[in-house]
Amino acid sequence: MIKTEKLSKRYPGGFQALKNISLSIGSGEMVFVTGHSGAGKSTLLKLIGGLESPTSGTVEINGQDITKLSQSAIPFLRRNFGFVFQDLKLLFDRSVFDNVALPLIISGLPRSEIAKRVRAALDKVGLLQREKVNPVSLSGGEQQRLCIARAVVNKPAILLADEPTGNLDPAYAADIVAMFKAFNRVGVTVIIATHDPAMIEGLGARTISIEAGEMTL
């Protein structure tokens, strides 16, 4: 259960990215956040995931206001989320396997457990055969899927994806959306930011529209 109350974010320099966003997303829901580039979609996802802190307003996750969490509690909050970053943030100094293993290593899981979970995540996104290669040698769509595998490997309750189909051709994009749908079916709350109306079509999912930092619906 995610609930925001009068959420605002003003960046240093005066840019008002979000204004008074109040919304509520039920657990197990799949929600799209749409709007033009620069409308504030990414900012909303970052605030929900605790990657940034708001200028004012609150973000409640399961009844807890995460904007009041101490710095030292933030890392543990982030482990409840799976992030699919717009710029992927893959590490090219290590294999596909090691990229996906990172969140589990951070959580301090034993090696054997890590291997099992990483392979399961890679299997879900269809990259099991590529675990040993460096992400550099993956195609754009494969890199995107790698990022998704890393996001879900921790079995997060909430998946936050920022433009996950940004630079992909429509066939690939449909693949990715189907993947998110599958995660949603097993109970994961999925929030996807996108500027691509084609992605939402026919899914019957709820849409939150943001224009110039304000909710329009």
């Binding site: 543990f76 970053f85 590490l91």
Partner: peptide, 16 residues
Amino acid sequence: REEIEVAKLVGATNSF
């Protein structure tokens, strides 16, 4: 730097 940033995004503590 990159590795540290990514690690922090996916929940690494400062001591980690």
